[in-house]
Amino acid sequence: MIVADRKPFDEIMDMIAPYDRVLLLGCNECVTVCAVGGTKETALLAAQIRIKRQAEGRTVDVGERTLERQCDPEYVNTLAESLDDYDAVLSLACGCGVQFVAENYPGKPVLPAVNTRFMGVTEQPGMWAERCQGCGNCVLDRTQGICPVARCAKSIMNGPCGGSHGGACEVNDQLPCAWQLIIDRLKARGKLDTYSEVEKPRDWSTSRDGGPRRRVREDMTL
């Protein structure tokens, strides 16, 4: 899933300062799972905004709605009429959702209520961690199911670097060294002999480095 953090409340208040009618728009996908932008969090943020504005002596009309997905025209198209009642949309979706709503309603300011962080997993309740960088050329078959691109701070393909210590990355003691994990699994599978192969430089053109990416399936296009 895409994991996000809510922006600091003061930053959100500054963003919506010019507006008196704001639609808070949640998303029922990733941001719901990582507990930052679902129906519940949308209601909570709406209440916070109302209280704060009231304390400031300035009325605000805060609407609440949660779409199944903000990254899909099927759901984004259903917004059309309800937007007439608002000056701005405050989206609690990831950056994809914010942009997709904005491009479908170019006349309406669409503001981000969250900072989109990474593609990851729920390691345990309340704890999410990055697993994939979307490089467009998966190597997990060669790296024992552990991604050095996303999980090594230096994206080293022939790791680990000299900073790996006690299973942790040099950047942060709480961060597991991806290459320690790879070596552990190679050993457990009796495959440490494959370690001596020099992994050649990657072609990053399938990654963000090749420019913004697009996928087309001719059989599905209209």
Binding site: S155, G159, E170, V171
Partner: peptide, 23 residues
Amino acid sequence: SGDHQSFGDHPGAKNVHDIDSVQ
């Protein structure tokens, strides 16, 4: 490889790591 930029005086810098030290 080089020490990670988080240790240095420009922790907000973007790192490269296009190829690694072995490569």
